[in-house]
């Protein structure tokens, strides 16, 4: 069982950091509701360090996802082949653009993904900053609380869009190449 180093980085970027962020989003919405919106007698809920650490972890994953995507995987995606190259499998963007039936995956998908993904770390870092600063007192700022929740929802949708486009683009023109990493040896039949 082998994987190329570029495929591995793409996997780490998307299925690692990106998917972890998306999974964490649903938990965050529940925890946010429990701490600041749900009616409860325990006013100490909002001061639980759990939510702050959870948000910090989400911010960390969001930044890792966009930085690995922008500075490690994207350069391989947009690499330019030398003149006369006919096999475009190592040049995903050019491969997609070479057919009318696949060009949209770049023109719509990647053009959208490469920008909307950056909304995610900005939004979740802001939410982390506000929750860390206000803690339980966020209950006393309903407008601010609703706005933070709205921005978190925007980050959830944006991460979902970036993940969807990334998965579809990688299906039609996968980022591949580089050195081969052997994960497991098996028997041929």
């Amino acid at each position: 069982m082998e994987i190329t180093s570029r495929s591995l980085w793409t996997f780490v970027h998307g299925m690692g950091f990106g998917a972890l962020y998306l999974l964490a989003c649903s938990g965050l919405l529940v925890e946010f509701h429990r701490c600041f919106i749900a009616r409860t007698d325990s006013v100490a809920l909002g001061d639980s360090p759990f939510l702050k650490w959870y948000l910090m972890a989400m911010s960390f994953f969001a930044w890792l996802a966009v930085l690995t995507g922008t500075y490690i995987v994207y350069p391989w995606y947009r690499a330019t082949p030398s003149a006369g190259t006919t096999d475009l499998t190592a040049f995903p963007q050019k491969l997609l653009m070479s057919h009318a039936t696949t060009a949209g995956w770049h023109e719509m998908g990647m053009e959208w993904k490469e920008h909307v993904a950056w909304l995610v770390p900005i939004a979740i870092t802001m939410a982390t900053g506000v929750v860390t600063r206000y803690g339980q007192d966020l209950r006393n700022h309903p407008r601010l609380r609703s706005a933070v929740l709205a921005v978190v929802l925007f980050s959830f949708v944006s991460a979902g869009l970036a993940g969807f486009w990334g998965a579809m683009i990688n299906k039609y023109a996968p980022v591949s190449g580089g050195s081969t990493v052997t994960l497991m040896k098996g028997d041929a039949h």
Binding site: A44, D47, A123, M126, G129, V130, R133, H141, L144
Partner: peptide, 22 residues
């Protein structure tokens, strides 16, 4: 537990700057 009542200005600054950045 001590409930600290913070002014809302810092939160507004965080929201406005995030919107501006995006």
């Amino acid at each position: 537990t001590a409930i600290t009542h913070l002014p809302g200005g810092a939160g507004a600054a965080a929201l406005l700057s995030a919107g501006f950045g995006v």
